Amino acid sequence: MEATQAKARQGDFAPEKWRSQETAWMLGLFGTAIGADVLFLPANAGFGGLIHC
């Protein structure tokens, strides 16, 4: 850990390659956002209507 921090301070730190685990996290977070929208959109439409004046 300290060696990584030392390299980052020196400016020669190269980021790691993109892994499939990171893709799974990204898709999971995207799916969570879409799922929340699908869940709350009908509730908001029922409470306030589709058109707010």
Rank of each mutant, 00 (worst) to 15 (best):
L50S: 10
A33W: 00
G28S: 13
G28E: 06
L29S: 15
G49Q: 01
A43K: 06
G35P: 01
F47K: 10
T32F: 09
E22C: 14
L39T: 08
L41K: 09
E22I: 06
G46S: 10
F47Y: 10
F30D: 03
N44A: 08
A33D: 03
L29G: 14
G49L: 00
L41G: 00
T23P: 00
N44L: 05
L27Q: 13
G46M: 08
D37A: 15
A45M: 13
A33G: 06
G48Q: 04
P42H: 06
G49F: 00
L39F: 15
G28V: 07
G28W: 04
P42R: 05
A45S: 09
C53P: 13
T32A: 15
G48R: 04
L50Q: 09
I51D: 02
M26N: 09
G46P: 00
A36C: 10
A24Y: 05
A33L: 14
C53K: 07
C53Q: 10
L39D: 02
T23E: 03
G35V: 01
G48C: 03
L39S: 08
W25C: 09
P42T: 10
G46N: 10
D37R: 09
I51Q: 04
G49A: 02
V38T: 12
G35L: 07
W25H: 15
F30K: 09
A36V: 12
A36R: 05
W25L: 09
F40P: 00
F47D: 04
F30Y: 11
A33F: 04
H52E: 10
T23I: 05
E22A: 13
E22Q: 09
H52T: 13
L50G: 04
A33T: 06
F40E: 00
C53V: 14
L50I: 15
A24G: 10
L29T: 14
H52P: 02
L27D: 03
G49C: 01
F40L: 04
L41M: 09
F47E: 08
F40W: 05
P42A: 11
L27K: 13
I51N: 05
G35T: 04
G31W: 01
T32G: 15
G48P: 00
G48K: 02
G46K: 05
L41A: 07
L29V: 06
V38H: 03
F30H: 14
T23L: 04
G48I: 01
C53W: 12
A24D: 12
G48N: 08
G46L: 10
F47L: 11
G49D: 01
V38R: 07
I51G: 01
L29Y: 06
I51C: 02
I34R: 02
G31N: 09
L41E: 03
G28M: 14
F40R: 00
M26L: 13
L29P: 00
V38G: 01
G28A: 07
G46H: 06
P42G: 11
W25P: 00
L41N: 02
G28C: 06
D37K: 15
W25M: 13
A36G: 11
G28N: 15
F47Q: 06
A43L: 12
E22Y: 13
I34F: 03
G31A: 11
F47V: 05
H52V: 12
L50K: 07
C53I: 15
A33E: 02
I51M: 07
I51E: 04
G48L: 03
C53E: 15
G31Q: 04
A45I: 08
D37Q: 12
